[in-house]
Simulated assay, not measured.
Amino acid sequence: MGSADIVPGVSGGTIALITGIYEHLIGAISNIKFIWLKPLLHGDFHSFKTKLLEDIDFEFFIPLLLGIAIAFLSLAKVINFCLDVYTAYTFAFFLGLIIASAYILYTELDEVNIKSFIVVAIFTVLTFIFVGLNPIAANHSIPIIFISALIAICAMILPGISGSFVLLLLGQYQYMLTCLANLKIADIITFVLGAVIGLLGFSRVIKWLLEHYKAATISALIGIMLGTVRLPYVKMASSMAGTNIIAIIALVIIGFFVIYILEKKF
């Protein structure tokens, strides 16, 4: 998930989905109700510890967050190198990943009907238009950073939508990378607060939708993934000069089967 989230156009939510932890992730986040705050404020540390362990699934979150952090630290340079030096090949691989992820979601539908096709078509078109937008020329004030984080984190937990890409569209991607590199604490804390609030709120919406409108939600996610294909395809097509077309096709196929095999394993 960490490797995916640092690449504009690839979603960490997609990786959560294909590895079979997506519903667990959404459930674990949405179940956080801060029941440990009351005993903490009253100085009852024994009850605080008990409520904290009841409220937060540490057995799930600790390895997940460690994995994301390690990916950010160790793979960011590798992925950026591949994107800079082997752009077409890298996006060809990403294209295969996204197509396969849409297919995996399709297999999750209990029933395929005209409503499903309509929802898929609507969200495919909307996402296709969205990913073709030009980045917004926004400032980097504290409120803008907060709102950008809130929106981006909502995208990050949706399969098919890249939080990094949303930041890119909002004109905050490179700025936040600079903040991380230069340890601009105020901006980083603002971003983290926006991300946490967005994550806690939006995860409950997703959980409710999956519980009450699962078919429509999955159909919408399929459409989002199909619409997102525009980004890696355009990036791949624009940098194909001097590349081997057979290798491009092979990498799309490899990307597809990587996801297919992962889904079968998990």
Rank of each mutant, 00 (worst) to 15 (best):
residue 3 S to V: 03
residue 6 I to F: 02
residue 10 V to N: 07
residue 12 G to W: 03
residue 18 I to M: 01
residue 19 T to L: 09
residue 20 G to W: 10
residue 21 I to S: 05
residue 23 E to G: 04
residue 28 A to P: 06
residue 29 I to P: 05
residue 30 S to H: 06
residue 30 S to Q: 09
residue 41 L to S: 14
residue 44 D to M: 08
residue 47 S to Y: 07
residue 48 F to I: 11
residue 50 T to E: 14
residue 52 L to A: 12
residue 52 L to F: 15
residue 58 F to D: 10
residue 58 F to M: 07
residue 59 E to Q: 12
residue 61 F to C: 05
residue 62 I to D: 09
residue 62 I to M: 03
residue 62 I to A: 00
residue 63 P to A: 00
residue 63 P to C: 01
residue 67 G to Q: 10
residue 67 G to T: 09
residue 69 A to C: 11
residue 71 A to Y: 04
residue 71 A to N: 15
residue 73 L to H: 09
residue 73 L to P: 01
residue 76 A to F: 11
residue 76 A to H: 00
residue 77 K to D: 14
residue 81 F to H: 12
residue 83 L to C: 01
residue 84 D to S: 07
residue 89 Y to I: 00
residue 90 T to W: 02
residue 91 F to W: 13
residue 91 F to L: 00
residue 92 A to V: 11
residue 96 G to Q: 11
residue 98 I to F: 10
residue 100 A to K: 04
residue 100 A to F: 02
residue 105 L to M: 15
residue 105 L to H: 03
residue 108 E to W: 12
residue 109 L to T: 03
residue 111 E to A: 11
residue 112 V to G: 03
residue 113 N to W: 07
residue 113 N to Y: 11
residue 114 I to K: 01
residue 115 K to F: 09
residue 125 V to W: 02
residue 127 T to F: 00
residue 128 F to S: 00
residue 129 I to S: 00
residue 131 V to C: 10
residue 132 G to L: 04
residue 132 G to T: 04
residue 132 G to S: 02
residue 135 P to L: 04
residue 149 A to K: 10
residue 152 A to D: 15
residue 153 I to D: 09
residue 154 C to V: 00
residue 158 L to Y: 13
residue 159 P to I: 11
residue 159 P to T: 04
residue 159 P to V: 05
residue 164 S to Q: 10
residue 164 S to A: 15
residue 166 V to I: 12
residue 166 V to H: 00
residue 167 L to Q: 03
residue 172 Q to K: 15
residue 173 Y to F: 15
residue 177 L to Q: 06
residue 179 C to G: 08
residue 191 F to T: 11
residue 191 F to K: 06
residue 192 V to T: 07
residue 194 G to S: 11
residue 195 A to I: 05
residue 198 G to P: 13
residue 200 L to H: 11
residue 201 G to F: 09
residue 204 R to S: 10
residue 204 R to T: 12
residue 205 V to P: 08
residue 206 I to R: 01
residue 207 K to M: 04
residue 210 L to Y: 12
residue 211 E to Y: 13
residue 212 H to E: 05
residue 217 T to G: 00
residue 217 T to A: 01
residue 225 M to C: 05
residue 225 M to F: 06
residue 227 G to S: 04
residue 228 T to D: 11
residue 230 R to K: 14
residue 231 L to M: 14
residue 236 M to R: 03
residue 240 M to Q: 05
residue 241 A to F: 05
residue 248 I to D: 06
residue 250 A to C: 06
residue 250 A to L: 14
residue 252 V to Y: 11
residue 252 V to M: 06
residue 253 I to T: 02
residue 255 G to K: 01
residue 256 F to Q: 09
residue 256 F to E: 08
residue 257 F to T: 07
residue 258 V to G: 13
residue 258 V to L: 13
residue 259 I to P: 03
residue 259 I to G: 03
residue 266 F to T: 15
